[in-house]
Design a protein around this nucleic acid. Structure first.
Lengths: 338, 338
DNA sequence: CTGAAAGCGCTTACAG
DNA sequence: CTGAAAGCGCTTACAG
């Protein structure tokens, strides 16, 4: 057993109430009492028991981040932003994998009901229907913020990148280089990011008097494998499209590896644009032109938004925060082949 | 306020003790009582308050993972393995960034003292001295497991890859290809992984009658930037070494990007070996020969080891678990240039 | 099988 | 400024 507030009270010759006050609001206590308490705390290494405090205060000082797949490095940077803000606020970060937890049968959101956490940051926009329903209960809904992805049918507060603008920027860049014949490498079709980025691509094409036929939309995952697999298909098209906009950098890097294997040169035969600007994008061969998302900012903003909701300090908050994206011009895009 | 055990007791016409038993040990309760309780629980959406339970049981059912830098995608896969095991055991995962938390001045290990978590998985082998001391206190030490990295001076239970064998495998592969003149791209010099991998490299070289002079050890970080920066140096060496063993895939990929810029071909001019086998390694251009670590396995094993320590079910546990590594032969290594 | 009661370790009105 | 006391929501010997 470790030392408790009773021990400290006894040792420093005051009541537990005074110990509690000395620790959480030192101003409210005489200097003498404060010193006695602080010394006892120091020498005996006392720490407030977090469960007792949380139980009494009815506040967990903790937040849960729900991630579609923890193993996907894309999310760790967002989590890093979340952690940064929470840590500043003295709030703990719990992490759960939304897919893994489904296996166990126990809902990720049990934590919220169990008062284990004060709120939820959800990075998964494709929750199963039952989870969506749980989330929508009034006492739950007010403690949830979506980051990166979101659920289009619901209306939760959300922090996201301007995915549509990203799609547009990619196409506009390629149009400037003279490209007219595009392919869009999609992520999962039901994923909102896929939809938004594709919408941006189409907007920019329409504006240029072009259109993107269905058979120029390929792929169904954000993965390296999916990009790699598409290279063979692309190489066999005739006439061959000269530019590919990918819904993720992973797809783009996989695609470039596949194209190299097909004997096609990037950007001489095909230009490739990614999405995300993961760290490795700048070091790909060729370096990858891509749409930069501010993933740290996504995480930080979501954490701040949630904290404000929990405190009730931002009831007038917009509930929607859209972060700008940037085109990073690199070596994977070039003039349309002659 | 949400519904409490008292409410369920009243509604189902039994005592709180019976509700508690019905929930945590249904066998111990009559079928009639069990049914009444379960129904009330269902219809009112009752969940046990985790703080009350933890306070009473003196167990948090949660574990803290301390990561050197959450933003580094390398760790997310390990965390994913940790989460998988914990989730199966019904234990929560808290995550903290060891560097970020130092900033706040509050020790990461405060959680342990505050009973907030039952144990700690530490992925950071280079903790500041004060943290090391905290960790070494007997009541803390028995609840700590190191994963991936470790502290050579202390003697905590630890799960790690066979880094030394990895270094050896890399060199042996290159020796077979005819290489004799090596460079080792190191991580941080005080990092134990750097030391072990380098030791393996040297062992294999010595065995082949070679040695690695100090001026053939370059770099001080596991990053892309560090690898990229080394390319210029390498290109200027005369005679130029023909093979580079890198302490991480990130270094290797950065280096390959730099070498391309220097007009050098991998593997025709220089062979490159990485370490880790991150997902992108297979899709680098050229695809990266590397030493595969089982990062999921690292995380899972560490979680299991910690859980066993907490339960006290494995007092005779070895306390050291070394996972094998594998050489992944790909396109970045080839015969020594004529 | 069941209930009354104590107690886990705090915090916070309430009095003084 | 301080203390006695109630109570946060559970679990678990202890009796029956």
């Amino acid at each position: 057993m470790s030392v408790s507030i009773k021990d400290i009270a006894r040792i420093s010759g005051v009541s537990t109430a005074t110990v509690s006050r000395a620790l959480s609001d030192p101003e409210r206590v005489s200097e003498k009492a404060r010193k006695a308490v602080m010394e006892a705390v120091q020498t005996h290494g006392y720490r407030v028991n977090s469960h007792a405090r949380s139980l009494r205060r009815q506040r967990a000082d903790a937040v849960l981040a729900v991630v579609p797949h923890l193993g996907n490095p894309f999310f760790s940077t967002i989590l890093s932003g979340v952690e940064f803000e929470l840590q500043q606020a003295g709030v703990d970060l719990l992490v759960a994998d939304s897919r893994a937890s489904d296996r166990g049968g126990r809902s990720v959101f049990a934590h919220l009901h169990a008062s284990r956490v004060d709120g939820l940051i959800c990075l998964d926009g494709n929750l199963p229907a039952c989870a969506q329903q749980e989330l929508s209960q009034p006492d739950v809904a007010e403690r949830v913020v979506f980051a990166c992805e979101w659920m289009p049918d619901a209306n939760f507060p959300s922090v996201r990148s301007d995915n549509r603008a990203g799609g547009r920027l990619a196409v506009e860049h390629l149009l400037e280089l003279g490209h007219r014949d595009f392919v869009f490498m999609a992520g999962p079709r039901e994923n909102i990011l896929t939809a938004e980025r594709l919408a941006g691509v189409q907007e920019a094409m329409v504006k240029a008097g072009l259109s993107l036929p269905d058979d120029r939309i390929k792929g169904q995952d954000f993965t390296l494998e999916e990009g790699f697999a598409a290279a063979e298909w692309l190489a066999a098209l005739s006439p061959r499209p000269t530019a590919v906009v990918c819904a993720s950098d992973q797809i783009a890097i996989g695609l470039m590896a596949g194209l190299a294997q097909q004997g096609l040169s990037v950007p001489n035969d095909v230009s490739v644009v990614g999405f995300d600007d993961i760290a490795i994008a700048a070091y790909a061969n060729p370096s990858l032109t891509t749409i930069r998302q501010d993933r740290i900012g996504l995480g930080r903003s979501a954490a701040r938004m949630l904290l404000a909701r929990i405190d009730g300090t931002a009831p007038e908050h917009k509930g929607l925060c859209t972060l700008p994206v940037t085109l990073m011009k690199r070596a994977s895009t070039g003039a349309v082949p002659a």
